[in-house]
Amino acid sequence: MEAKITVRDLYAGYGAVQVLHGLSMEVRSGETVALLGTNGNGKSTLMKCLIGDVRPTHGSITLEIDGRVVDLTKLRTHEAVELGISIVPEGRRLFPQLSVEENLLLGAYRKAARRNISKNLDFCYGAFPFLKERRRQLSGSMSGGQQQMLALARAIMSSPKILLVDEPSVGLAPIMVSQAISKIRELKDEFGLTVLMAEQNFQEALRIADRGYVLVHGKVAFSADSAVELQDSALISQLYLGG
């Protein structure tokens, strides 16, 4: 099952503020790709371009999925979801006034996911037992870590091929960051997902990434074909350790 995203020479921004300056990258089938970089270098903007939340001014984003080739820059968010892309947005974006279970059911809004709904729900409750205990609880009343897990579970409910995760570590305690990242790996293996994860916490991201890109000022400054290569990169130590 092919699921591939190719980004070519992408320029995007907000009004007068240009954020991406000719960014090119790709995510191939079955990979876990990490998007690294400190704040303000365009990780989230790239994610938003991928889901049609921000329209690029130049460049292309091509999605190959199930033998179809689609221009992602033309789609609205829900249409991207319909094709099999699932999003765990930054800051989680749950439905705070709805229960845990209602949140999960809404994750399965995609037509292809509706027939798998009980199977996926069972899987989610198996993978995240606390969600089952709290199924009647309003999602907004849970802790940040629990909400992040729910956001992950909700993304899985849509039976996706591609999982986009934007900054899963934001606002979480270190132990929860570690758990969330491990869960992403588990879900990927279980469902044969292709994963693109934007993350600032590069040590955590490297634990599960097959390879990665380092973004600086809206461009790919460094592209590594393995986690080891990323680990040893001089740029990483310069960015993160000030070396």
Partner: peptide, 16 residues
């Protein structure tokens, strides 16, 4: 129901 609660989250869940 979803879009009443959080419209952008609804769109991210595939709700048109």
């Amino acid at each position: 129901h979803a879009l009443r609660d959080a419209e952008s989250a609804a769109e991210c869940s595939g709700v048109p």
